[in-house]
Simulated scan of single mutants.
Amino acid sequence: MKDPEFWHNKWASNKIGFHLNEVNPLLIEYWNKTQPALTDRVFVPLCGKTEDLVWLAQRHESVQGVELSQIAVRSFFAEHFYTPTVIPVNGQHELYQFDELSIYTGDFFTAPLEQVDIVYDRAALIALPETMRQAYVERLLSLLTAGGRILLVTLDYCQHEMAGPPFSVSSLEVERLFKEHKVTQLHRDEADETHPKIYKKGLSRFAEEVWLIET
């Protein structure tokens, strides 16, 4: 990952406005579009300490995550009163395991991740600058089994009006990044003038989108 200190500093200073204290409503509404089965192995990249992990673990036998910040991973287990087994891996990572959950700490690009059937990406692609997205998508696709699916959440706004992260990833870019696969837009929520990104940040537009990628 480029500039890992940026994210380490965010967690160390508890500047984590990107973290949701509840399960993402978009996950609840659209997860069934992936046609999930109990035995499907699920992966959540750049997972932080999201509540979505618990929701997914209640529905699947294997949920795998990777997160750069050890603070985030330790906080996740502590806040849920889980006592994980912690295993050092190849000198660069640690694996935290508890029941259905397995979370690697460290770089997404070097973590020894297992093959999965479904990916849930709410905050990974939009956390990466444009120069890293192609490599991220290639690694992500390499982890998917044949017939794998991705539920992807993105943001769309005029990038020059606000510095990321989270970054804007347009529909054209989503289609380009996954051009070899079936891409379906499931949802687009266009913000009105009462949205904080409009009236506080002065953005001319702001939308949240949900995509289903089928490989």
Rank of each mutant, 00 (worst) to 15 (best):
114 E>N: 12
98 F>V: 15
103 I>N: 03
88 P>L: 01
94 E>A: 12
67 E>K: 03
39 T>F: 03
119 V>N: 10
95 L>G: 07
110 T>M: 07
71 I>V: 14
95 L>P: 03
30 Y>N: 13
38 L>T: 14
78 A>G: 01
66 V>T: 12
82 Y>G: 02
57 A>G: 03
78 A>I: 01
38 L>N: 07
96 Y>R: 07
76 F>T: 14
97 Q>W: 00
71 I>Q: 11
95 L>I: 10
24 N>A: 10
90 N>I: 06
60 H>P: 07
125 L>K: 02
129 P>L: 04
108 F>P: 00
58 Q>S: 11
94 E>W: 01
94 E>Y: 09
101 L>V: 08
121 D>Q: 10
103 I>A: 04
37 A>R: 13
97 Q>N: 05
108 F>I: 11
92 Q>D: 11
25 P>M: 08
104 Y>T: 08
122 R>H: 11
36 P>Q: 13
91 G>D: 11
86 V>Q: 02
27 L>A: 13
90 N>E: 15
72 A>Q: 03
128 L>D: 09
73 V>R: 01
116 V>M: 12
94 E>K: 13
50 T>D: 08
59 R>W: 03
48 G>C: 06
88 P>M: 01
91 G>N: 11
63 V>S: 07
69 S>G: 06
97 Q>D: 04
100 E>P: 04
30 Y>S: 10
58 Q>W: 00
85 T>N: 06
94 E>H: 14
59 R>D: 09
80 H>D: 08
82 Y>C: 10
101 L>G: 01
128 L>P: 08
128 L>F: 02
62 S>A: 11
98 F>S: 12
87 I>Y: 00
63 V>K: 04
117 D>L: 06
89 V>S: 04
26 L>D: 14
110 T>Y: 03
39 T>H: 13
24 N>C: 05
60 H>G: 10
55 W>H: 15
96 Y>T: 13
40 D>R: 00
51 E>I: 01
99 D>P: 00
118 I>G: 10
125 L>C: 05
100 E>F: 02
91 G>A: 12
32 N>S: 15
59 R>Y: 03
129 P>M: 04
125 L>M: 05
39 T>I: 07
56 L>S: 12
90 N>C: 05
102 S>G: 02
96 Y>E: 13
118 I>E: 09
88 P>H: 01
34 T>W: 01
49 K>R: 09
26 L>Y: 14
121 D>Y: 07
42 V>S: 08
100 E>S: 15
66 V>W: 02
65 G>E: 07
32 N>F: 02
129 P>T: 09
104 Y>G: 05
120 Y>Q: 06
50 T>P: 09
80 H>I: 07
